[in-house]
Each structure stands twice: as structure tokens, then as C-alpha cells.
Simulated assay, not measured.
Amino acid sequence: MKIKKILNNNAVVVSDHGQEKIAIGGGIAYHKKRNDIIKPKDVEKLFVLKENEKLQQLLLRIPEQHFILSEEIIDYAEKELDTKLNEHIFLALTDHLSFAIEREAQGIHLKNKLLQEIKILYKDEFAIGMWAIKHIKTTINVEMPVDEAAFIALHIHTMKIQGGDMKQTVRQTAILRHMVDTITQFLHITINEDDLSYERLITHLRFALTRMNQYNTHSMDDEMLTVIKKKFSHSYQCAIHVQQELLSLHGIELPDEELGYITLHIERLQKNN
């Protein structure tokens, strides 16, 4: 592989069998110049992306330390999750992270409205996000808020194999947030978001939405559903209200048996409050 352009000490554009690629490796460009040869053993990652030009521009514009931090977070995530992340995470996370670090250094703090839902739905990814913000603090002494751990978690989740699309993930999480808000407003309660019943509700609602996308629902016999409607009538009316909101705002219609299960979770939540 022959160097075509040096992006920073750890990244170069190379020509490999006539194809342009970005080669990543610790100190890969140290004491190197254009047309020098890169040995395969020095390459840790090799990218052939549609976004090659964007990645080149990004690596030329951001501080090299931000690039290194992103690479370290990706490596840590892959080890913790025991999986390879989609190669597009390198561009997406590096771009996001550098901008986030600049914002925080300037005292501009962005809130993540989906923080509590992300903590529950994507526990492993959120734990990696928490490690990442501690690592940033230790490395460059920029203190990132816990909200940023949630943003990082979303990036990691959507870049897992079959992790999904970022827009779809954010949309589903926002729908869950709205469903919970609808429930609390209907019941006139405040939820302790660290409570186990809240975690169970969020988890169930998430899988309810997933099942709807897959045309697969819980099975509950009519007799049991009738009992639930009568015994927990207020919670059932709350579930009906949630269903009406979902249909009106998002075009999602929950079947009766799903409403039965949601009613049980709402009843538990109400009792705990």
C-alpha cells in the first residue's frame, strides 16, 4: 500500500491495488511522506467507504485527539459487546463526538430528552457511553454530561449488526417517551424512573411496538381480558387512551390483547405510586 495523503499521525489515504482506501493505525504516518509504503502489519483498520471523501475532510478538520478518542471508544464497544460494529460508525461517531466535545468546552450543554428510556432499553450501550464520558474526562479533561452517554449509546446501538436505523431508533424511543407521558398525565402521578415497575413498563412497551412492526402480538384469551377490564377498569381506560394517542399521532393501533398486558403494567405502576 502506497501513501497518497497523510490525514494525521494515525490515518492516511493509501492506494491499494489501484483502489483508494483510508488506513488507520497507531503512529502509522509517523516519519512518513507521500508515496511511502505502508506495511499491512501496521494497519489496524482499513476503510473502503462511500463516505471516504467525507471521512478525509473530517480527519483533516478535527483535533487528532478527538479522532483517537473515537477510535478508542469504538474498540472498547466492540470488546464489550463482543461484536464488530458497522464500519460507518467511524465517520458518524467521530463527527458527533468532536462536535460534542467542542460544545461542552464552550459551555453549551444539550439535554437528551430520551435519557431515561435509553438507559433502560440499551443498557449495555449506555454503560459503554458512561465509560466513554469518563474516558474523555481522563484523557482531555472535558467533563461531558450523562446526556452525552445516551447519545453515544444510540450511535453504538444503531451500528450493531441488525441494530437498526438511527432515525427509526430515535423515533421509537420518542414514541415510548410520549406513551409514558400520556400514562402519567392520565393517572396524575409522578414516576420514579429508577423504579423497577417503570423499567418493566418501558421494556414491555418497547417490545409491544416491535411486535406490531413484525405483525406479532401477545396471545391472551377473551375470558382473561374481560377479567382485566373489569378488575382494573381505570388502568384499562388509561391503556385505551394510550392506544388512541398512538393511532392519532403515529398511525399505530394496538390490538385488544396487547392492551390487556399494558393494563397490567399500568396497574402495577399505579400501585407503586
Results as ranks from 00 to 15, higher is better:
224 M>S: 10
269 L>H: 07
155 H>D: 00
41 K>L: 15
14 V>L: 13
167 K>W: 00
108 I>R: 12
164 G>L: 03
36 D>P: 08
105 A>D: 13
116 Q>W: 09
92 A>N: 11
29 A>Q: 02
81 L>Y: 14
171 R>C: 01
31 H>T: 14
156 I>F: 04
62 I>N: 05
40 P>W: 09
23 A>H: 08
241 H>A: 09
243 Q>V: 00
201 L>Y: 05
12 V>P: 03
174 A>I: 00
166 M>L: 12
169 T>K: 04
160 K>Q: 13
112 N>S: 07
58 L>D: 05
177 R>N: 05
29 A>C: 02
222 D>H: 09
236 Y>F: 14
136 I>R: 05
235 S>D: 09
210 T>F: 05
73 I>S: 04
251 G>V: 02
153 A>T: 05
134 K>A: 12
190 T>M: 08
242 V>T: 08
190 T>Y: 11
231 K>G: 06
237 Q>Y: 10
144 M>K: 03
194 D>Q: 14
28 I>G: 07
60 L>G: 03
21 K>G: 04
270 Q>K: 15
273 N>M: 13
52 N>M: 08
268 R>K: 15
192 N>E: 13
48 V>K: 15
62 I>M: 06
51 E>K: 08
249 L>G: 00
158 T>M: 02
247 L>K: 14
85 L>S: 07
190 T>E: 15
7 L>K: 02
90 F>E: 02
91 L>W: 01
207 F>P: 00
94 T>I: 07
169 T>P: 00
211 R>M: 00
126 F>E: 04
19 Q>C: 07
113 K>Q: 10
170 V>M: 03
261 Y>G: 05
220 M>L: 12
68 I>G: 06
264 L>M: 15
22 I>Y: 06
200 R>A: 09
69 L>K: 09
257 E>C: 12
57 Q>K: 14
90 F>I: 08
3 I>L: 10
177 R>K: 11
162 Q>C: 11
146 V>S: 14
